[in-house]
């Protein structure tokens, strides 16, 4: 039984002609890690808002089709109940700071205070999550004094601490360096292993290839391609529609007609795969003499 179910979902923002989402059909299994890619304006954020219930509960406009999580229709649930089930980490970390708290520790605790968790458990869960997201040393800092990447970690921690069944992330590493990105992907993968369902809008295809179970490519509000990360991320059709493509894929694609990439070998997405491919070719040539 899939935990997330979208059927024939079409959504128009108020006063707009063109749908931001069109005929979306999507099922996500419990514990699955799905990545959503797409050029700017493809509808990634809109999809995230829909999953998290902000469409239709906060953004009005016209929502058609079925949005169901854990067997409950979004229209039948209050937003305040829905957010406990589906947690959303937004694109802009600065605007996610509650504005009511003075330290990172308090900021992360905010969601638990609101949902009535006892104090001792709040403290235990916040400490655990701060460790996990690598910001334990920032606990006493003001959330405003942090860098963008650090604020993104705080935003992630603030939602993770609430232990939602479904975790939705909208470009959660956009302001992070490669080390931060790697850590965050690692944490999210770990959550998925523990049974949390993850849907993540993200540009960084090399990381998606390593960590996600499935990739959805959105284009103009529609699902354009869908499948295993490597199949989707190396699909030629992504290039013409302006999707971000890994430079290793591009390199190998250019090398292929020149005989510099083995035909039977799938195109690489990550550096490791590219290196493995090129060394395999060199070794094969050496053998031939």
């Amino acid at each position: 039984m899939p935990i997330v179910k979208l059927q024939q979902v079409t959504y128009h923002y108020p006063f707009t002609e063109k749908p931001a989402l069109q005929d979306i059909n999507l099922e996500v299994e419990e514990g699955e890690f799905v990545a959503v890619i797409g050029p700017n304006g493809a509808g990634k954020s809109t999809l995230c808002y829909t999953l998290a219930g902000f469409i239709p509960h906060f953004y009005k406009g016209e929502l058609k089709g079925i949005v169901e999580v854990d067997g409950v229709l979004v229209q039948d649930s209050d937003l305040s109940d829905w957010v406990l089930k589906v947690g959303l980490v937004f694109q802009n970390p600065f605007n996610q700071i509650s504005g009511a708290k003075y330290t990172v520790f308090e900021e992360v605790a905010f969601g638990l205070e609101n949902s009535g968790v006892p104090r001792s458990e709040i403290i235990r869960r916040v400490e655990e999550v701060l460790q996990m997201t690598g910001i334990a040393d920032l606990a006493d800092r003001s959330p405003y004094s942090l860098s963008g990447g650090q604020q993104q970690r705080v935003a992630l921690a603030s939602i993770l601490v609430m232990q939602p069944k479904v975790l939705v992330l909208d470009e959660p590493t956009s302001q992070m360096d490669p080390i931060g990105t790697r850590e965050v992907f690692g944490v999210i993968r770990q959550m998925a292993e523990q049974g949390m369902t993850v849907v993540m809008a993200e540009h960084k295809v090399e990381w998606i290839a390593q960590f996600a179970d499935r990739v959805i490519a959105l284009w103009e509000g529609k699902i354009y391609l869908e499948g295993k990360p490597h199949e989707v991320l190396t699909d030629e059709r992504l290039v013409e529609k302006g999707f971000g493509v890994s430079r290793y894929t591009t390199t190998a694609r250019l090398a292929l007609p020149r005989g510099l990439w083995q035909k039977e070998r799938p195109l690489p997405v990550t550096l490791e795969e590219a290196v493995a491919g090129f060394s395999a070719l060199r070794n094969a040539r050496r053998k031939q003499g």
Partner: peptide, 15 residues
């Protein structure tokens, strides 16, 4: 945006 963000943290929860 901030209104949505605090909503996402269960601010209007009746608990």
């Amino acid at each position: 945006e901030r209104a949505i963000a605090i909503e996402a943290r269960g601010f209007t929860s009746r608990r």
